[in-house]
Each structure stands twice: as C-alpha cells, then as structure tokens.
Nucleic acid binder design. Sequence first.
DNA 1: GCTTGACCTTCCAACCATTGGAAGCTCTAG
DNA 2: CTAGAGCTTCCAATGGTTGGAAGGTCAAGC
Lengths: 133, 133
Amino acid sequence: MNIGEAAQASGVNAKLIRHYESIGIIPKAARTEAGYRVYTETDVNILAFVRRARRLGFSMKEIKKLVGLWRNRTRASSDVKALALQHMKEMEQKIEELQAMVKTLRHLAKNCHGDHRPDCPILEGLADSRLNT
Amino acid sequence: MNIGEAAQASGVNAKLIRHYESIGIIPKAARTEAGYRVYTETDVNILAFVRRARRLGFSMKEIKKLVGLWRNRTRASSDVKALALQHMKEMEQKIEELQAMVKTLRHLAKNCHGDHRPDCPILEGLADSRLNT
DNA sequence: GCTTGACCTTCCAACCATTGGAAGCTCTAG
DNA sequence: CTAGAGCTTCCAATGGTTGGAAGGTCAAGC
C-alpha cells in the first residue's frame, strides 16, 4: 500500500501522514527501491487511531503517548485513564470559559439596538475598564 | 508615556503592543527623537479595548474591525451587533463540539478499570472503526 | 563625567497542527 | 513514448504570542 492508498484507508491526508512520521508520532514507513513509502494494515490502524484521538481533541503530544500505550501490550490501563481524565478536565474548563464569554457578549448585545444609530453598548462594554477581569 | 508605562496601564505586554502595531491593529505610535514610542491616554484606551476583546475570544481580524468601528463615531450599531452575534454563534458551536468530545471520552473512561491491567476500553474505543465519524 | 542597570529599538525564531506550493522523480495506461 | 497522476523533499504560511540576541538610550549614583 502506498501513501495515497493508506491516506484513503485511514482518513488521514497523505501530506499529514508524512508530517506525523517526521515528528515521530508514527513509526517510519518502509520504502520501495524507488523511495516510495509502503504501508501495512497495522500502519493504517495506527493512522486511524491518531485521527480519532485528534478528533477528540487530544494534542499531538498526548497522542504520541497514547500511540505508545496502544502499541505496548503491557501498559497499565491506569496510564490511559489518567490521560483521558486529564484531557476531559481541560476540555470542561475550556467549555466554562467559552460559556462565560458568550454570557458576557449576550448581555452586551441584548441592549444594542442593532440599527443605524452609532450608540452601541457592546463597544462601550468593551471599553469599560470595569470589565477588566 | 513610553511603551513600558503604556503596557503597565493597558495590561498589554510591551512586546505585544509592538506586534499589534506591526500588523496594523493599532495606529502607529509617535516617536521621540531617540526613536522611543510615545503613548497617550487614548492609545492606552485602545490597547485595553483590544485586550478585553481578545479575552472575549474575538480573533485579531475581528478586533481590527471592532477597533475601526470603535474609533469611528458614525458607525452603525448594527455592524457591531452582527459581529458580536456571529462570534457568539461560533463560540456556541465550539462549546457543543467540546461537550460531545467530553461525552464520548466519559463513556469510554467509565468502563476502564484504571489499574495495572492492560485492558482499556479507551484505547479500544479509539481503535474502533465504528467511531469513525 | 562615567559606570551601571533598566529600558528601549529591530529582527529572527519558536510554539501547534495543518495546508499549500515548487521542483523533480516514478509509475501506469494508452 | 508520452501524458498525467502520484510520489519525493524542502520551504513557507496560517494565528497569536513569546523568547532571545544585539545594540542604542535613559536616569541614578559615585
């Protein structure tokens, strides 16, 4: 399987596959005599694994760890769980931050006429030093 | 006021102030004979405005627009409101995405022993092609 | 007046994850 | 044999910020 077919099968862009290899996320692919990368079913599984983890918002650093744990049959499930729980915590924090931002903006927008007049509580709110925090 | 004092007063890092100037977010500061940037109260207000908008998650591109509208006394409030509502919509979408990620991870983690055993539903879930979407 | 140290200047590079392009080689079909 | 699709490497850009290096300038103390 060459890189294009592996990309098709795994859902990971060919360009991205090379990038993942270059930064050590995935093992270096074997090559043909002409220098083309060659992939096995296992390689495709790893790539799909990376893609799913990425879609769940894991950073490449975290994914590197996860791939290592995945390939290691003697890993402890506690290692994986800790990584997942930590990641969940960070995402929940991010959600709270975003919700606070939306709340503030909604409050400001509520009192904005939204017409041709220049008065705008949104801008005034942004300019208000009491909003410093 | 030099850049350090302006940074102190506005809460925006001196380094970042230069950066904002270089990418045209804020107007070019006046200079002393020696080349030092000089800031007025108005400049500090703009910087603080940028900082608050940034903290509400606006992109620099959006902030560039907002600063323009803020400095323009004949702007229509509808322009600002549209920008704010669009931004809120994007943040709400992001929140939903994150919540879906957390939900999936929570589900996977629930069945993970989290001990020394290698069995781990989290990794199995990530490797499961049914999770492709 | 001279040194010291804090501040200022510019420019260049790094972070993260991805995407794009250019230039050149290799394969496959007609 | 040629066309074009696909492969190779390398370099650059995105966005927002931070860091450092190398050098000029200011204010205070001696």
